[in-house]
Design a protein around this nucleic acid. Sequence first.
DNA 1: TTTAGCACTCTTGTGTTTGAAGTGCTAACC
DNA 2: GGTTAGCACTTCAAACACAAGAGTGCTAAA
Lengths: 363, 363
Amino acid sequence: MGLVGRELSERKKQILKAIIDAHIEGGEPVGSKSLMQNKQITCSSATIRNEMAELEEMGYLEQPHTSAGRVPSVLGYRFYVDSLLEHYAMTSGEIAEINKILHIKMNELDQVLVAASKLASKLTNYTGIAIKPRISSVSILKVETIYIDPHNFLLVVVASTGAVKTKYVKLDTAVSEETVERFGGCLNTELAGLSMENITLPIIMRIENAMGGDSALVNPIIKTIYEVMSELDGGELNLSGLSHLTQYPEYSDVGQLGELMSAFESKEEILNLVSGHTEDKVNVYLGSESSVRVMNQSALIFKPIKRGGKTVGAIGVIGPLRMDYAKVLATIESLCGNIADLMGDEDTFLLPGFTKTDQNTDK
Amino acid sequence: MGLVGRELSERKKQILKAIIDAHIEGGEPVGSKSLMQNKQITCSSATIRNEMAELEEMGYLEQPHTSAGRVPSVLGYRFYVDSLLEHYAMTSGEIAEINKILHIKMNELDQVLVAASKLASKLTNYTGIAIKPRISSVSILKVETIYIDPHNFLLVVVASTGAVKTKYVKLDTAVSEETVERFGGCLNTELAGLSMENITLPIIMRIENAMGGDSALVNPIIKTIYEVMSELDGGELNLSGLSHLTQYPEYSDVGQLGELMSAFESKEEILNLVSGHTEDKVNVYLGSESSVRVMNQSALIFKPIKRGGKTVGAIGVIGPLRMDYAKVLATIESLCGNIADLMGDEDTFLLPGFTKTDQNTDK
DNA sequence: TTTAGCACTCTTGTGTTTGAAGTGCTAACC
DNA sequence: GGTTAGCACTTCAAACACAAGAGTGCTAAA
């Protein structure tokens, strides 16, 4: 028909926006007559019907059945999010809540992310996500050992992202407290600054020599280091407010809700999706746009949080396609802004691992 | 009628067991005729009807409506769990899976608990829970500091339970690496062995003096210690396999599922429940037996994991009242047994914090 | 190009019916 | 006296028909 791909007329945009707004509000297919209550629209229901028919042909709308109103398609939502969205002004109460929660005793990135996602969930009534993406090249900032008893010590690894991991190392032969401390010093000098792929065999041999050539002793330590590094760049996904989803009729089918929850539990797909896109903007994945199979009826919105040019986390929300995008986008932006402020103001507060030079080399 | 409280006849027990077995199997009210397929039962349907009427009067059964079969009441389930349950023999495959998963690179309690609850969920098809209960008197085994930069160091606290917590401490005045190390030594000597209520003002003053009398420096450190201790004895709750619940018709009502999920999210009530009961046995809470309001249709089964006389964790499952108790109980017992073996065999492996003397004083 | 009007379609809710399942009770039976 | 067969009664659930309502597409007029 030649309609597809053509630019939308002003009136079509207006009608499309009105339809999506109404559908987001009420959740039901919207018909031509009910649209006439909208004061913005001056033409008659018949004209609206004509326009709607064309919008459907162009792919922006769908009709559940012949005598039902229209429902936005994924393409419709996409256009809405990209071009039609009105700015949502956050209430002073919402802003106050963000400030209050995020500024309380938050001195570690993990906690900030989780707190922010909880807040996102609470403010928007959707499910909040906090993500630490897979990082390809996380490096070691510092390694320390803490003596526990002759057969055990604690390995503490501080990563360049500021993340800290601890693990117990069990030794077959008894060692003294001094020996453990010497291990720490030697691990630190050899490994600090290195990323996983930079820990080469020569380095391992040097460590072994420095520790006295006892490979039976060094092996479990190296193995633990490897475990720690794997966990550090493995990524994490944390959901909050899962129960919010149950309030939306889109998820009234328990089966579908279960599938979505399974996808959340495996974490893999979502983690891959988020880890892949780290531009500094809000990402909006609508239904089948994402590779996550089970998200056909859902929208995933997230924004990465950057630090010194590197993505260290992301927060967002998951909810039905029929989502209050204006509010969600404003909330996510605001939360990310606050986190950025926190990190910017107090430079080494959140992520002590970054020195000035680190940041400069990245930019 | 004088029936209530009387001892159940052998035949009544047999019929009650058959009813509950059938109901667990099929999920629907079970009638007198369908029970006759059970070879154990030799009498006619009319006799069964009479017995069922009496069992109902005694409170063990319920009838959704006049012309429906009978459904076990909470009391019925309780009697079933306490007296009628048959031992479930775990398959060699299940045993192999437990051994395989739990023995792989698990050297920290947290991870073992979570892995065990995941396994419980997978093997039983219900939702697994891993709990670290609130501990009233967790004490500090060791404190260490790790220098990051002049304004930040990392505080590492090892608890008597073996748990490790790290937190960044931000200082307003710049300090040297040596100073930070001195802090660590002094914190360690003053605080090691103490629990939160034993950290008194005189001790804090001693620390302040040892650090050079600068209270502006000591305050944030003490505050961080306090935070760490609070988190250590605060308890944790971890769910796995939440999506399993959606497969049971008991939870086909999304609203109820949502309420249950909210209860999971708040964590408080369940944590309180589990923290309160730490006898070394499997605890079974059926429906309204627990104080958790929303669990009326659900069963909570868990067993504490003890170590040196102290409860350090618990694992269990949550599912519908109509649950395969035999299998669940066997699975939980088996998992706890394996964890106990792990902890017993390699004494200081899981929880290096316990010395022999520690354990003896506790017993 | 827009609008009013109308016939048509499809869903939804309601009332009715039918069938199946299961009980309780009574009377006969061992 | 306990047990069983038979039967009337109750209730739910599925099936069906029917009316109401909402919304559309199309046509013809403004």
